[in-house]
Design a protein around this nucleic acid. Structure first.
Lengths: 268, 268
DNA sequence: ATACCCATCC
DNA sequence: GGATGGGTAT
């Protein structure tokens, strides 16, 4: 028996929104620790994973490890049925291929219950090596989203260059070229509006703009985002989910003259 | 070398929005006086021009006269990348076909720089004769926009009739007819909400509603607008841009039974 | 790529 | 309540 109740169904909605553009189906791996998920986009260029600790749920019960294969389009439909402040409970009996989703309104006056067919999803679980990154940039997530969106007007590739002074995003295409610079400044009142660059070594890498735009759909999850860069290593884009866990994207840099994006599993 | 910095990039954005529906490409004529622009719509029915005095820029530098041929769709994309309170700097070296656009955030922590290819645009510079108008109407720009939009539901033609008492806008079409009257009243608290009619002679003229609706896209530039009317003379719709200059549209009245809009250069 | 509708912010 | 921006649908 698996049962997990989250006070804010909206949180799960945001997580789903953050995945939807990247993957169609995903396995939730549920254990006594909590819920983990790892999924690759269909072209094997990007990987997304998230971790929700059991501490974020109340109650949380997972008698034995269970994998819930979800069709995200279905889950999106279901989650649209949640009220803004509804709680959400996920429940699955062992040896069934069904997930029960239950929404409860704050005042308990309305409950909505859904039964969703589970899928059997082929999965390749990649171990992601811990790296010492050349640069770790933290910036407001809204700023990152804005930059990705703005630069998407200027070509398919987005260059991220980190120096001790800050970080520079650039792109160029038919209509012209664009370069956006953020200066490091940690002296700001609000921690969430900081831009910080932890630099071991200056680094400049090129990525597919389209994927970065998709990644930034996770913006509602956190007010800030961190980018971890290292040559010939997938970029990590991480959104912390307060008190519960995190959501991370991985994207291999484009390499060489043709600036093709490498498959992420070519870079292991 | 040409360089002009405007504290409010939003001002230039509004100017572009005011042109976009009328013309696709436009030449900015830059001199030590400032930046002027004059462009005709593709069917030669309407003309738009604006004047931005060098006083509105700081710094402003224009070593020698230079014409910047802009594709407005490109400039629109670039200006979308500006933050709300960013300054904007336009810069062009002599003998290049490139315009540099630089946005700087108020706190200087973010800068965005764009390189845009300039165009070579055929231009016919019309001299616009000064006229003694039969009537000059001033009204709140939002009111004018609302009236144009409302009357656009009632036919392609919009009649403007000025008398000593005020101004009357009317239209009629298949679904019925509409007449909107504004009484002159200069006794209002706020000058911007006044409706005034300076009348030399009562005048009633008919215009293409569609163009007037387009003109009223300039509403964000000024809280009031003036309409200058005279028989057989292009209507002038003027928005003052405080401290910097103005933007004007010209539109020949429809004449005769068929109520065809005359080409503006037929009326010189 | 453009237009319409919905949601969020002022 | 209105306006602006973003997302979705055509």
């Amino acid at each position: 028996m698996f049962e997990a109740k989250l006070a804010q169904s909206s949180l799960l909605k945001k997580v789903l929104d953050a995945l939807r553009e990247i993957v169609e189906d995903a396995n939730l791996d549920c254990s006594s620790d909590g819920i983990k998920c790892q999924a690759m986009d269909s072209s094997h260029v990007a990987l997304v994973s998230f971790d929700l600790s059991s501490d974020g749920f109340e109650p949380y019960r997972c008698d034995r490890n269970i994998t819930l294969g979800l069709k995200l389009a279905t889950m999106t439909r279901v989650l649209k049925c949640a009220g803004n402040d509804d709680s959400i409970t996920l429940r699955s009996q062992d040896n069934t291929d069904t997930l029960t989703v239950l929404f409860e309104s704050p005042n308990q006056d309305k409950t909505s219950q859904f039964e969703v067919k589970l899928m059997d999803i082929d999965t390749e679980h990649l171990g992601i090596p811990e790296s010492e990154y050349s640069a770790v940039v933290q910036l407001p997530s809204g700023e990152f989203q804005r930059i990705c969106r703005d630069l998407s007007q200027f070509g398919d590739s987005l260059v991220i260059a980190c120096t001790k002074d800050g970080v520079e995003f650039s792109g160029s295409g038919e209509i012209g070229s664009a370069k956006i610079s953020l200066r490091q400044h940690s002296m700001v009142d609000k921690e969430d509006e900081q831009v910080t660059v932890e630099l071991n070594q200056p680094v400049t890498l090129t990525f597919s703009t389209r994927y970065l735009v998709s990644f930034s759909k996770a913006t509602p999850l956190s007010s800030s985002v961190t980018l971890s860069l290292k040559a010939e290593t997938p970029l990590v884009v991480e959104y912390r989910i307060s008190d519960v866990g995190h959501l991370r994207y991985y994207l291999a840099p484009k390499i060489g003259d043709d600036e093709e994006t490498e498959h992420i599993d070519d870079c292991s």
